[in-house]
């Protein structure tokens, strides 16, 4: 019982930190706006300065929400993959699921200049991009799963995922070679990753699909916990392996797909956040881990975004650069730690 209370306390603290960082994130940007005005705008009072109000309501708040959705969703996807593959280095990015999403989007945007016609219109449609990204990530995931059935060694599956990443990159560069400069630029900007630029309508769609993904995660909690003992034990405890596996993969591809569609391929969050969370919470129980990972992911994404926008300067760095700067050392540290253990 004592343990449960301490989890409650940790969750309470984390949520306070999340709220604080959310407002901190909104309060900073290329234009400096007084704190009082920010709160006034958020809570619906008319601001003394129209453009400040506009920036906050139509730019900074949507960006903050996108960061929370993307950070938490990617982190949950990463946790799911790490438990399913029983590999600490698994994640949507490493397993090539993000590459799959990229391929889907590349075919849509870059393919537009080759195929022409109605494709061009689709390329500018956020929903079409979302569908293409989801399809792409699901295809790669299904492919990885198919191979995973034959290859028992999880390290090999990981390498297959990485190889698929290279393969995808090759196809994308071929597509890029034949596509128009305008489409290429559109794709390139998408691939940098960006939390901004979403309208409230797009956020609504993002939020709905994200919520579907999150709801689908919950029935998997029990089988995720059985999987902690390995597939054979999980089966012996009554888990329907095929069904659970498919359900976990479907959930992951929905979450990764929609996030990649709306904010581009964001690296390392899905891989690194579950590890940081496990260090802090020191548990393997997914009932605790999933909400914890979601909050941590949101916090780290907001911090990354705060750094990326270089407060009070007119420059904004690609979000991918920041998450990689923070994520790559975590992966190296993980490998070093594993070396010590074995």
């Amino acid at each position: 019982m004592k343990q449960k209370d301490s989890y409650k306390f940790s969750f309470f603290t984390l949520i306070i930190i999340l709220i604080f960082i959310f407002f901190f994130n909104i309060s900073l940007g290329s234009v400096s706006i007084p704190l009082k005005e920010i709160f006034a705008s958020i809570f619906g009072y008319s601001s003394s300065n129209e453009s400040w109000h506009y920036i906050i309501v139509n730019f900074r708040v949507p960006k903050g929400i996108t960061a929370v959705l993307a950070g938490s969703g990617l982190s949950i996807s990463g946790l799911l993959m790490q438990t399913l593959f029983r590999n600490p280095l698994a994640g949507p990015f490493v397993l090539g699921i993000s590459s799959g999403a990229s391929l889907g989007v590349a075919v849509l945007i870059l393919g537009a200049s080759i195929l022409g016609g109605s494709f061009i219109l689709l390329g500018h449609n956020q929903i079409a991009i979302a569908i293409a990204a989801s399809l792409g990530s699901f295809m790669v995931l299904a492919f990885v799963m198919l191979l995973a059935k034959r290859v028992k060694n999880t390290m090999a599956i990981l390498i297959i995922g990485l190889m698929f990443g290279s393969f995808t990159a090759a196809i994308i560069s071929i597509l890029a070679y034949f596509s128009s400069a305008e489409n290429l630029q559109q794709y390139l900007f998408w691939s940098f990753g960006s939390l901004g630029n979403l309208s409230w309508n797009e956020i609504l769609i993002f939020f709905i699909i994200y919520t579907i993904g999150i709801i689908l995660v919950i029935p998997n909690i029990k089988s995720l916990n059985s999987l902690l003992l390995g597939e054979n034990y999980a089966k012996s405890m009554g888990m329907n392996l095929q069904k659970s596996r498919n359900s976990i993969l479907l959930t992951t591809s929905i979450l990764t797909g929609v996030i990649t569609a709306f904010s581009g391929p964001i690296a390392f969050i899905g891989l690194a956040v579950p590890h940081i969370t496990k260090l802090v919470f020191n548990t393997s129980n997914h009932k605790i881990l999933i909400p914890a990972v979601a909050i941590f992911g949101a916090i780290i994404m907001l911090i990354s975004d705060t750094i990326a926008q270089l407060p009070n300067s007119e420059y904004v760095l690609p979000i991918n650069a920041i998450t990689s700067l923070f994520g790559a050392p975590v992966v190296i540290w993980l490998l070093m730690r594993k070396q010590k253990l074995s």
Binding site: I218, I221, L229, G238, K287
Partner: peptide
């Protein structure tokens, strides 16, 4: 061997109840 994890002994033993617990365990 079971994969590396953070389970306590009690939590691991409790997993044995999985066939009997409800949908969320």
């Amino acid at each position: 061997r079971i994969p590396q994890n953070n389970l306590t002994v009690y939590e691991l033993i409790a997993l044995g109840r999985q066939p009997y617990t409800n949908w969320i365990g």
